[in-house]
Design a protein around this nucleic acid. Structure first.
Lengths: 246, 246
DNA sequence: ACGGCTCTTTGACACAGATCAATCGGAATA
DNA sequence: TATTCCGATTGATCTGTGTCAAAGAGCCGT
């Protein structure tokens, strides 16, 4: 993972890569952000913050994948968020982290020191407006996931996860092809099971089943090819085409 | 359900009843809110908004209980939110509802016409700040619930739900007694099952089991008495005492 | 090339919760 | 008082997923 390029620092590629605070990259406020901004990289497997720790920054993922997990005393764990590039981490207004944040691949974060960022929020309505919008999006995603966890079968759960990964990957790639997809799994079977509320064995079995059914093709253990997205969506019991909100 | 009293309209009792926008009830902005505010009541069982509908207001629950649910084509449904007094409904910035909102008891809503409310948000930083905070709280609640849905047993799920209801009820009542609780179940067994990702039969069986174990006492089918909250928390596998956030 | 890792796959079996079905209880209506 | 209706309970059985266990597949360092 190399240091971010100057063009990135200048947010030339922001609307996607860095959507947290750069929705209006051409404005003056960016100068302010630049002053309190720094980059930090984490290696695969490394914790970014631990539940309960003090957290003196907020930021967004520039590259790589991180996870948000919650754990019970007896060790049962549930992933409550999957942080892909452009996703935001941190809560202005509170100091303690509520979840474990762990890098599952090498991760580059763009961070803002928390206090100055909060000050900036107070002074800059459009940034706080943007933050509200992002939070509402996350809330929708969490609720969507509640349906997955509460009502879908193991097979549907796997298909739902693959769909999310395919969609997110596609939105960053150039191939607008809706019918097929290809991407790397950034998660181990265990991490997938934590996200889906399953065991890793069930995850493995269902992936094998989807492979046998021809819905997906695996190259190695981590690279997935979906010849026909419609079939995957069908497996996922998915009816959403975006457009949420209450 | 009677019309709200004038004192309520004036937000004399706001900090709890009406936390959406009245965190600073003593300020001038309240005047502005009053102008775009109206009350609306719904009968038990009545839909408030339907997924996909246009939604021209936001607001908060003054009394009663409403639910937010999501449904798949084949009828499987998952509740994604339980709206108790003081909870906020609606998303400034988007017009379509993403979930079904249904009154499960008689409900009194305090509504704000959406457009003027949005304008007010733009002009009044502390209100939009408050809204962000509330949204983050909801996000935490959703994530907490993901753990319940993904990793807890049927018995723990029931206990978790009862705990939430007991806590919310207590915060509005006067008895600060932490050790025992008493409240009405505002939900049918079926609604509980939709919240918990279970069937109504399993809900019924587990409630019977908790009753037999002496953890709860039922008076009729809807009134619950918890002689020892610690035991219930124990059943719920609960370790949170509030204080969240990432 | 060789262990020694970690991650993954696959198998055999057990069990929590789903499904199907019957009955019960209380409130509303006649 | 009888009737209906809807929600709740309880029982019998089935099944999807968890649990426990063994073995395979890469990958790294020596």
């Amino acid at each position: 993972m190399t240091a971010p390029s100057l063009t990135h620092v200048k947010c030339a590629d922001c609307p996607i890569r860095h959507r947290a605070v750069c929705a209006r990259c051409d404005t003056d406020e960016l100068e302010l952000l630049d002053e309190i901004k720094y980059y930090r990289s984490y290696e695969a497997g490394q914790p970014i913050v631990w539940s309960g720790d003090q957290m003196d920054f907020v930021g967004s993922v520039v590259s790589g994948v991180a996870t948000l997990t919650q754990t019970m005393e007896d060790g049962r764990t549930q992933m409550v968020g999957l942080l892909l590039p452009s996703d935001f981490v941190g809560r202005p207004g509170r100091s303690g982290a509520a979840y474990n944040v762990v890098a599952t691949t090498n991760v580059m974060m763009c961070c803002f020191r928390k206090r100055p960022f909060e000050d900036l929020l107070d002074r800059t309505p459009h940034i706080s407006h943007r933050l509200l919008e992002m939070t509402l999006d996350e809330l929708d995603a969490a609720r969507e996931w509640m349906l997955v966890l509460g009502r879908k079968t193991a097979r549907e759960k796997i298909a739902s996860l693959l769909t999310i990964l395919a969609r997110r990957d596609a939105s960053f790639g150039e191939n607008g092809s809706e019918s097929e997809a290809e991407f790397d799994l950034p998660l181990t079977r265990e991490a997938m099971s934590d996200y889906l509320g399953l065991t890793l064995e069930t995850v493995s079995r269902q992936i094998s089943a989807l492979k046998k059914a021809g819905v997906i093709v695996l190259e190695g253990k981590r690279h997935v090819l979906v010849p026909d997205m419609a079939r995957l969506l069908d497996e996922a019991g998915d009816d959403s085409d975006g457009g949420y909100l209450v």
